[in-house]
């Protein structure tokens, strides 16, 4: 029986978000909060591993109280339990402070139910770093396996897992001791529509909610903005490049002009055509 914990995050949908051009800040009202798309694949993989090997899937997130919604989404996908750590003292955390807070929560979770596998999405769409997963692994002193696009085997009795890690030109097959942490690629699975019973369960589900005071042996100095070595000093819209020539005229004239531009580089096409 495996205990898998998926670390997830609620994020603003950065595809829809509008920036305030005067202040260069995000206008959060314009963006709906969603479960980070990469994390949906992490939860789905955890659920599939539970189906195969038996066990429990927990999800863990840090965020403001509305992040409960992201946990409910994970319950819809098939998670069994959800944990939200929420406290103003967590706010403003960079990747280092985030991995610290999540690790403290993971330590608490594993006290009641030892964790065999921590699983994360490749990255979040609002932070775009992919640094929190490996950070958690280092803090828990378990092997980090990044870029995982297939889990071949989990053997709890023998204490190992075998995965494929995606490389730039292929993949490598890696065996790791358990427990370990995996951050998974989107290609690892497809997240199907949630079955109806899961939706019902999610609607009624209430996650465990912890504040800083509920966590043990915690060093407040390592939390939130205070515990973050990196700071954003300046946010700016990049200077607009000069822009190019806009080709005017009728469609026919535009195409002719464009063609003449392309044919100036005809050596590229001749090489390709090879006639």
């Amino acid at each position: 029986m495996l205990h898998i914990v998926a670390c997830i995050k609620q994020v603003p949908d950065t595809k829809i978000i509008k920036m305030n051009p005067k202040t260069n800040t995000m206008d959060r009202r314009t963006a709906p909060a969603i479960l980070n798309p990469y994390d949906a694949h992490a939860v789905e993989e955890a659920v599939r591993l539970r189906e195969k090997y038996g066990g429990t899937v927990s999800v863990l997130t840090m965020g403001p109280p509305p992040a409960v919604k992201a946990i409910k989404k994970c319950i819809e996908i098939g998670a069994d339990e959800g944990y939200l750590i929420t406290d103003r003292r967590f706010a403003g955390a960079d990747t280092l402070a985030t991995s610290y807070a999540l690790t403290k929560a993971l330590e608490k979770i594993s006290k009641t139910k030892p964790v065999d596998l921590v699983i994360c999405g490749k990255m979040t769409i609002d932070g775009d770093t992919g640094q929190v997963g490996p950070g958690i692994a280092r803090r828990l002193d378990i092997p980090p396996l990044t870029s995982v696009n297939k889990v071949v085997e989990i053997n709890k009795r023998e204490g190992y897992a075998v995965v494929h890690r995606k490389l730039e030109d292929g993949y490598e097959v890696v065996q790791s001791a358990l427990p370990c942490l995996m951050s998974v690629e989107k290609t690892i699975n497809e997240v199907p529509y949630s079955p109806f019973p899961n939706m019902l369960k999610a609607a009624r589900y209430e996650p465990h909610i912890w504040s800083v005071d509920d966590l043990e042996d915690i060093d407040i100095k390592q939390l939130g903005l205070k515990g973050s070595p990196t700071i954003v000093s300046k946010v700016w819209a990049p200077p607009k490049p000069e822009g190019g020539t806009i080709i005017e005229g009728s469609s026919q004239q535009q195409v002719e002009h464009l063609l003449s531009v392309l044919l100036e580089k005809k050596e590229l096409f001749q090489a390709k055509e090879g006639v």
Binding site: D94, L96, T129, G130, Q131, G135, T146, K166, E168
Partner: peptide, 23 residues
């Protein structure tokens, strides 16, 4: 910012500890 570079930098920054800016 390759799969190896990101993997290594994330782990090293945590152990140092120090700040790491991605990408």
């Amino acid at each position: 910012a390759t799969s190896t570079g990101k993997d290594l930098a994330s782990a090293v920054a945590t152990d140092m500890p120090t700040g790491l800016t991605a990408d």
